[in-house]
C-alpha cells in the first residue's frame, strides 16, 4: 500500500465519521442537508476500476443507510452517483489525459475544473436521493428546492475541506 492510497483511506474515514456524527444532525432551515460522505466516491482516483468504484459506493451507501434508518436509499443513490461519475469524468478529460492515480481535487485540477466536475454530479445524486426519499414527485417544488440548496451546501463543505487540507501541499 503506497502513501496516496493510505491518504485516500484516511480521508474516507474522516468524511464518513463527519457525516454520521456531525452532518446527520445538521439541517439548515430544514432545507439544507450536507451529504459529505459522497465526496469519498467523488475524490477516488479516476483511473480506478469502474466496478470497484461501484462496489465501494454500494457498501458506503449501506453503511450510511444504517445510521439514517433508510435501508437502501443511500446505497442506490451512491451507486447511481458512481456510475455517472465515470462517464462525466470521461467527458471532462483535460488535454493530455488524467495523471495516473491522481484524485480529482482542486490542487491537481484547479477550482474551475473541479466545480464543473462536482456540481452536476452532486445535483444528480441529491436529486435522486430526495425524490426517492419523498416517494415520488408529490412535493415537487419543495423537494427541488431542498435538492438545490443541499447541493450547494455539500459542495461548499467539500470545497472548504480541500482549501483547509490541501494548501500545505501546494506551498511545498
Amino acid at each position: 500500500m503506497n502513501s496516496s492510497s493510505a491518504k485516500i483511506i484516511f480521508q474516507s474515514v474522516i468524511f464518513f465519521l463527519l457525516q454520521v456524527v456531525i452532518f446527520r444532525n445538521v439541517a439548515l432551515f430544514d432545507v439544507g442537508f450536507c451529504f459529505i460522505y459522497i465526496a469519498i466516491i467523488l475524490l477516488l482516483p479516476i483511473e480506478l476500476d469502474r466496478i470497484i468504484v461501484l462496489l465501494i459506493a454500494f457498501v458506503l451507501g449501506l453503511m450510511v443507510d444504517v445510521f439514517y434508518n433508510s435501508f437502501g436509499i443511500h446505497a442506490s443513490t451512491a451507486v447511481i452517483f458512481a456510475f455517472i461519475r465515470y462517464y462525466w469524468a470521461n467527458t471532462m478529460t483535460p488535454q493530455g489525459g488524467y495523471d495516473s492515480n491522481s484524485s480529482p481535487n482542486i490542487s491537481t485540477m484547479g477550482i474551475q475544473w473541479f466545480s464543473t466536475f462536482a456540481i452536476p454530479l452532486l445535483f444528480i445524486h441529491h436529486f435522486a436521493l430526495f425524490f426517492i426519499e419523498a416517494g415520488g414527485f408529490s412535493f415537487f417544488w419543495f423537494t427541488l428546492f431542498k435538492v438545490i440548496i443541499s447541493t450547494f451546501f455539500t459542495f461548499l463543505v467539500i470545497l472548504l475541506f480541500q482549501l483547509l487540507f490541501l494548501t500545505k501541499k501546494r506551498r511545498v
Binding site: 437502501g72 447511481i80 456510475f83
Partner: peptide
C-alpha cells in the same frame, strides 16, 4: 460495469421496497 450497476440498483431497490415490511432486519438500522 453496466451489469454490475444494474444488479446493485436492483438489490438496493429491493431493500428500499422491503424495508417497511420486514421487522427482522434489526441489525441494519
Amino acid at each position: 460495469a453496466m451489469l454490475v450497476f444494474v444488479l446493485l440498483e436492483i438489490l438496493s431497490s429491493w431493500m428500499i421496497l422491503s424495508s417497511d415490511l420486514s421487522v427482522s432486519a434489526s441489525a441494519f438500522n
